[in-house]
Simulated scan of single mutants.
Amino acid sequence: MTVVLRAEATPSAPALLLRPWQDEDVVPLIEVYRDPALRRWTRVPVESVDDAYRWLALQRVGWESRKRISFAVLADDSEGGPDDGPGGGPGGDRRRLLGNVVLKSVNPAVGSAEVGYWTAAYARGQGVAPRALEALTGWAFDTFGPEGLDRLALLHQVDNPASCRVAEKTGYRFDRLMPARPPFPRDGHLHVRSIRPV
């Protein structure tokens, strides 16, 4: 199943294209993972070509099982320039990698799933995460709502205020404090969003 999602441009940022991860994303993925802040919040290291291919293989398995559905978030901008970051530049693909969004632990039978995301260092502060998360949320409810999905959870550690802001901007209300449990060393916030009214 090939799914492509879009988020509209804003006055300060290009439109977003969300699509399944592909082999062509290996080099940009490695570049993005050099960011220490990203490595702090993610659990699977991507430091080499082999790591990147393993990571991509996990994403494909997730799509096949419908248990972990991840999208590469790309700038859908044909006006890119030499400072586009990985994947951009003169004569190159103007759809530079900006981040990742994922729908995981999908279980419509119990009505729930979880969302997650990360953003490349050079794309932070431009509204990428909220716009990509909103596109994923709408797609998740449209796709799995008829099967029983009616709520999505967003979890983040208490020392990640940026994720708290993204949750609030996209209508994920704070639900409760979650105690630390492996592999997370700190307490976390649970945010929840219910299916939009028809």
Rank of each mutant, 00 (worst) to 15 (best):
T2Y: 03
V4G: 06
L5M: 06
R6W: 10
R6L: 04
T10M: 05
A13C: 02
P14Q: 07
A15C: 06
A15M: 00
L17W: 03
L18M: 09
L18R: 06
R19D: 12
R19Q: 12
R19M: 11
R19K: 12
P20I: 04
D23A: 11
D23P: 07
E24F: 04
D25E: 05
D25F: 01
V26D: 04
E31F: 01
R34Y: 14
D35P: 06
D35R: 04
P36A: 11
A37P: 01
L38A: 07
L38R: 08
R43M: 12
V44L: 11
V46M: 14
E47I: 03
E47V: 11
E47C: 13
D50C: 06
D51C: 08
A52H: 05
Y53I: 07
W55T: 10
L56R: 00
L56S: 04
L56V: 10
A57V: 02
Q59K: 15
Q59G: 12
R60G: 06
W63F: 15
E64T: 09
S65G: 11
S70I: 13
S70Q: 14
S70C: 14
A72I: 13
A72N: 10
L74G: 06
A75Y: 07
D76I: 09
D76P: 04
D76N: 09
E79K: 10
D84Y: 04
D84T: 08
G85N: 11
G85R: 13
G87I: 12
G87H: 08
G87T: 06
G87K: 00
G88N: 05
P90Q: 08
P90Y: 11
G92K: 15
R94I: 02
R96F: 05
N100H: 14
V101P: 03
V101E: 07
V101G: 06
V102D: 09
L103A: 12
N107K: 08
N107F: 10
P108F: 07
P108R: 08
A109I: 11
E114V: 13
V115A: 02
G116A: 15
W118S: 12
T119M: 10
A121T: 08
Y122T: 03
Y122N: 05
R124W: 09
Q126F: 11
V128W: 07
A129T: 13
A129W: 02
P130I: 14
P130H: 14
L133M: 15
W139F: 14
A140C: 12
A140V: 09
A140Y: 02
D142R: 15
F144H: 06
E147K: 01
D150M: 08
D150H: 15
L152Y: 00
L152N: 02
A153M: 03
L154Q: 02
L154T: 00
Q157R: 12
V158N: 01
D159F: 04
N160Q: 09
P161Y: 00
A162F: 04
A162N: 01
C164V: 01
C164H: 01
R165S: 10
R165F: 01
V166I: 01
A167H: 00
E168A: 04
K169P: 02
G171N: 04
G171I: 01
R173I: 01
D175S: 06
D175C: 02
R176A: 08
L177H: 02
A180C: 03
R181K: 07
R181W: 03
P183D: 05
R186P: 00
R186F: 08
R186T: 09
D187M: 05
G188Y: 03
H189V: 01
L190T: 04
V192I: 15
V192F: 03
I195Q: 09
I195H: 02
R196E: 11
P197S: 11
V198W: 05
